[in-house]
Design a protein around this nucleic acid. Structure first.
Lengths: 166, 166
DNA sequence: CTTGGAAAGTCAACAAGGCTGACGTAAATT
DNA sequence: AATTTACGTCAGCCTTGTTGACTTTCCAAG
């Protein structure tokens, strides 16, 4: 299985070894990706789950609970635990829907915006430095491969954020 | 702070919006990245932690426990729990070090190789299809950005694997 | 040869963050 | 009026991470 000659490789980089390196790169890079926010969070009572919730609330202010459930891909009980503490501690604010009063629209409070900013600054700093080190060409490829790696449903979520998000 | 004009942007793609998209791409892609092995694992008594251990034992047969600890970045108690079940179920085999008899060298058994193969086939299939969809240029960039995103220590681990692993 | 430190294993307890199942309430829809 | 939808919550479980303490084995250096 390491016997396949060139040919495939020169066209598409698809030896098992190349693929394995990609897998390992994902593993190690994801650790780096979460390291900085994690360091900030562990000094408080919050975890990675709180960060994710705040990120997407910040990204789509006024989003509903069920929308957030779809994006995060967790159960409502799991999300509720996180949302509960964010509400209690005044980082997130609720607003009943005007059109449909069953819906709860989520917003970050001033306080919440401050923390989100701190977390996202740290994470963006690492991303910025990685982009700088790799160069503009690489950034295109990076995003293309990641996008192709997503499940179709996840890709849809991702692209919906892109549209609304700029 | 959203006031920065062009200049930076045209050279290096470094608007906050670009960085935010990269962050979200990592988030959604990592879910896809782990989805296929997870589906296989949940039908058995194993989890993602078992997969990671098996992956790196397969990658570096005969590696020691402390080596594996450094790569995985967890505590020995955490790893030991996982390793315990893999040994008990006959997926992993131990060998006392010849030179230093305190060391335990880890190997996959026949049985272990079969499972590792199934998991890694699934994961490589997704990686292969993402690479194909994105093209050879993109693969270069993908790996370059991921590598730049790692902590220096993680990058060292990653590169040590590359050397020995081909 | 003794002693110190390194490699590994283990017990106990705990926390974060997933999960399922069941149930309740308010509001929209049919 | 009945059903469905959106949300919240209680209770309990699992995986996988953590700290702290302690032991055994073994290498290496004094």
């Amino acid at each position: 299985m390491a016997e396949n000659s060139t040919g495939d490789e020169s066209l598409l980089f698809l030896t098992d070894e190349q693929l394995r390196k990609g897998i390992e790169a994902m593993f190690f890079a994801y650790r780096g990706f979460t390291a900085d926010p994690d360091r900030i969070l562990e000094t408080m009572d919050y975890g990675r789950a709180h960060h994710r919730a705040m990120h997407f609330i910040h990204r789509s202010p006024g989003t509903t609970v069920s929308n957030l459930l779809a994006i995060l891909g967790v159960t409502k009980q799991s999300l509720n635990r996180v949302l509960r503490t964010l509400l209690d501690q005044g980082l997130v604010r609720l607003e009943k829907g005007r059109a449909d009063q069953r819906e709860r629209h989520l917003f970050l409070t001033e306080h919440g915006l401050v923390l989100e900013r701190a977390l996202s600054d740290a994470q963006r700093a690492r991303m910025r430095s990685a982009y700088r080190a790799a160069g503009p060409q690489a950034v295109q490829g990076f995003r293309a491969v990641l996008e192709a790696m997503m499940d179709p449903e996840q890709r849809r979520q991702y692209q919906r954020l892109r549209e609304g998000g700029s």
